[in-house]
């Protein structure tokens, strides 16, 4: 990774592709939307708090406005009443944007197969990474975030620009 080696002190000429440089930047500070639905939101708060410290990944800053957020973490069960709101929030986010479906309820509605819940948030918005668990441990969420970083590193800016 050319960009990183230039940070190590050996300041020569660094060659890299634009894709790589942009994706490196995008994974460095992915600001999540300050948005929680249910139990998983509490584990998400734990992930951000002292012990798990999400700021290691440049993610300590939650934006309350979807206009300023890159990442939507759907943390919790999505009721039918809430579904249009989530779609609205997703539409309001500026591209490039990503979605992590945190927990069983958001991924497939978990233990509830009933009238009240949308059976997986992927029915209303596209999801990049699914994190299993009810609720997932903070380590699992961090694993999901790293998986998303991996995915972002493989993206091409052309695809977002079109």
């Amino acid at each position: 990774m050319g960009v990183i080696s230039s940070k190590l002190g050996n300041l020569g000429i660094v060659t890299t592709t634009l894709d790589e440089a942009v994706n490196w930047g995008r994974t460095g500070a992915m600001w999540p939307l300050l948005f929680g639905l249910a139990c998983c939101a509490i584990e998400y708060m734990s992930t951000q708090a002292s012990n798990y410290d999400l700021s290691r990944f440049g993610m300590e800053l939650n934006r309350a406005s979807p206009r300023q957020a890159d990442l939507l973490i759907v943390a919790g069960r999505v009721s039918r009443k809430m579904a249009p709101v989530i779609r609205q929030l997703y539409d309001q986010m500026a591209a490039p944007k990503w979605v992590i479906s945190m927990g069983d309820c958001a991924s497939c509605s978990g233990v509830y197969n009933n009238y009240a819940l949308v059976q997986g948030v992927d029915e209303i918005i596209p999801v990049d990474v699914y994190v299993a668990g009810c609720p997932p441990r903070p380590e699992q969420l961090i694993h999901g975030i790293l998986a998303l970083h991996e995915k972002v590193r493989g993206e091409h800016i052309k695809e977002w620009a079109s």
Binding site: G76, S79, V111
Partner: peptide, 9 residues
């Protein structure tokens, strides 16, 4: 907005 139908389940 978080109605889950737990009682019915």
């Amino acid at each position: 907005y978080l109605h889950t139908g737990i009682e019915k389940n």
